[in-house]
Design a protein around this nucleic acid. Structure first.
Lengths: 199, 199
DNA sequence: TTTAATTGACCGACGAGTCGGTCAAAATAA
DNA sequence: TTATTTTGACCGACTCGTCGGTCAATTAAA
């Protein structure tokens, strides 16, 4: 019936990991499918058994990684936290995630850049960011309600917070040692909460 | 001896403008040199008279645009301003610049992404960001000294502010209507200065 | 005429995707 | 148990369209 029973899902994951590494190193257009195949210890044809095209692999990888990231986020927020605590947790875990996996920055830049290119595959970043802004701004609204936060525009603030995370990651991509001496995980949340102005 | 005297610089600029438009629309790797030539109303060969290679054109364009942006920034800061005023001016002019030329976001994503690819040409973003952080953090230090700002870590704060600008631009690239209803030029500086916490 | 400026047909490298063939495990027969 | 058949996972040589870059020819100013 079915000789050689292969765990297709596990194999897809293997390919994803190889692809992540190669795409991060060479960028989307600089990567040849053969490179991915070699990295995954298989023939090019095999990669095509699992992914219809280079695009399918690339955009599939995005979904895979986004899912992993969401898992990390959801792992640190609980209903018992105050809005302040929840926000802090999200900010730290994100900064730490970017820190732990330097390659992710390069990949993300590629996803940003390629997100258009037609086809049903393209990444809907507007939806992804919408969702993130929703979560953050809801936390901010809750904080305002509870008297914990000032009456800021929660949508704009959410956008800014997410912007900081992306923007700081970006700078770290260009200069990995940027925060060698400075504890960004403390200072960034501090700035978000306290602002620049003297109290 | 010297027949046709062509203003080489003006012609280079023509090509830059055409290239900016095409690169923004199709991305670096999606752009054919022929596309640029057509947009600039000339033959492909002519483009190669002015730029040695696609890379030379692309990275040359970056320098050209960066220079234009710096000119904009320097136009709004004066020695008489308080640190608060100078920072506000920089933030607004940057947000407005991103707003006025939507294409710039796409281009920037391409520059970010391609910044590595060897050769003597690659963009030194670490230096570019270093310079920006220097300017901003110096302003913040000055503000702290004058008792205008709290004792934040000025390097981290500068990094965060620049991050907000890049990050917000990014979100606007994905969702151009994001700030249709909300005055981001007011709210973002407000958040930076006042923070989230209730005073 | 001379020489700068322009051009686009052409070339060759490159890489995505294909496809016919191989192989080993599993099922079945003997 | 051993031989035979079946099946699908795997593979890499090949094809073929696509550009970056070149250059011989053309245009036009001086």
């Amino acid at each position: 019936m079915a000789p050689i029973i292969v765990d297709k899902e596990a194999k897809k994951e293997e390919i994803f990991l190889a692809a992540a590494s190669v795409f991060a190193e060479k960028g989307f257009s600089g990567t040849r499918m053969e490179d991915v195949a070699v990295k995954a210890n298989m023939g090019k044809g095999t990669v095509y058994e699992y992914f219809k095209s280079k695009d399918a692999l690339f955009f599939g990888l995005y979904d895979y990684l986004l899912n992993e990231f969401h898992t990390k986020i959801y792992a640190v927020i609980t209903p018992e936290q105050t809005p302040f605590e929840a926000l802090s947790a999200i900010v730290s875990v994100t900064l730490r995630a970017f820190d732990e996996w330097h390659d992710y920055g390069f990949l993300l830049m590629d996803f940003w850049k390629e997100h258009r290119r037609g086809g049903g595959l393209q990444i809907e970043f507007s939806a992804v960011y919408d969702k993130s802004r929703d979560i953050i701004s809801r936390l901010i609204d809750e904080g305002i309600e509870k008297g914990e936060f000032a009456h800021v525009d929660s949508r704009a603030a959410a956008s800014a917070i997410i912007g900081i995370l992306d923007g700081v990651m970006l700078q770290r991509v260009f200069d990995p040692d940027l925060y060698g001496k400075c504890d960004v995980e403390t200072h960034i949340p501090a700035l978000i909460f306290m602002g620049l102005k003297k109290r």
